[in-house]
């Protein structure tokens, strides 16, 4: 479903190559994990896929289904079914969380030529989904992510994912800053969304999230490349020995 081929990315503003040939293919129904040391380019990959400014693709391709992602505006990628749960969710003062969710849901529906969801149906759905994630009514009313704790922000990302029902979900360090309970809640939320037609790319620095969201494939990223891929056991290897061994092995 998500096909990344030989992706090379540099910063737009400076001559700094960050991704140096990434190859990755995530099939529908599968969960792929990317692990790797800080600074290896994991967030950059997620941003480039979702269309953030500031990066230049110098080589390679990225497609979602039959769509060339790199050709689309960020909102078009979203409508095509791509979703990024941000490592650092953005605070938007003055925009209510509920308004934000509804605007997003209906914008995507409109872009896909579907009927917009009416206020009542939307409210019902959002309440049910929020409840599963233990997001209370108060949090839905507040401005987007403003004054949210780290855990609340991450749960809010998962809520958005649940409402938007994307085909391909990228989660960037969704476990960072969460205690065990919050992580479980987030993982349960993600697991509830796992389905035949949906792919996941879970970016994480630590193995612990992968205890809860069981991956099918694990990739190790270092210095802008995927240097090793394997089954869930690869994550355990990292957990036990750190990245050093794997990095040495490859060099």
């Amino acid at each position: 479903m998500l096909e990344i081929k030989n992706l090379h990315v540099k910063l737009e503003e400076e001559d700094k190559q960050i991704l140096k040939g990434v190859d990755l293919s995530v099939e529908a129904g599968k969960v792929h994990a990317i692990m790797g040391p800080n600074g290896s380019g994991k967030s950059t990959l997620s941003y480039v896929l979702s269309g953030r400014d500031g990066y230049e693709v110098t080589e390679g391709s990225a497609t979602l289904g039959d769509q060339d992602l790199l050709d689309l505006e960020p909102e078009e990628r979203a409508a095509a079914g791509l979703f990024l749960a941000f490592q650092y969710p953005v605070e938007i003062p003055g925009v209510g969380n509920m308004t934000f969710l509804r605007t997003a849901v209906n914008a995507q529906r409109k872009a896909r030529g579907e009927e917009e969801m009416n206020a009542t149906d939307f409210l019902k759905l959002v309440r049910a989904r929020a409840k599963e994630l233990k997001i209370d009514a108060e949090m839905l009313k507040r401005p987007v992510n403003v004054g949210f704790s780290g855990g609340e922000k991450k749960r809010n990302e998962v809520l958005q994912m649940a409402m938007l029902e994307p085909k391909m979900c990228i989660l960037d360090e969704t476990d960072s800053g969460l205690d065990v309970d919050a992580m479980k809640l987030v993982a349960d939320g993600v697991n509830a969304l796992r389905s035949e037609g949906r792919g996941f790319l879970v970016i994480t620095h630590y193995q612990r999230l992968l205890d809860h969201i069981k991956p099918d494939v694990v990739h190790i990223m270092a210095d802008g490349r995927i240097i090793k891929s394997g089954g869930p056991e690869l994550a355990l290897e990292v957990e036990n020995n750190g990245y050093a061994d794997i990095l040495n092995e490859v060099v």
Partner: peptide, 8 residues
């Protein structure tokens, strides 16, 4: 970008 990434 956050809003656009959600489809707006």
């Amino acid at each position: 970008f956050y809003l656009r990434s959600r489809g707006v």
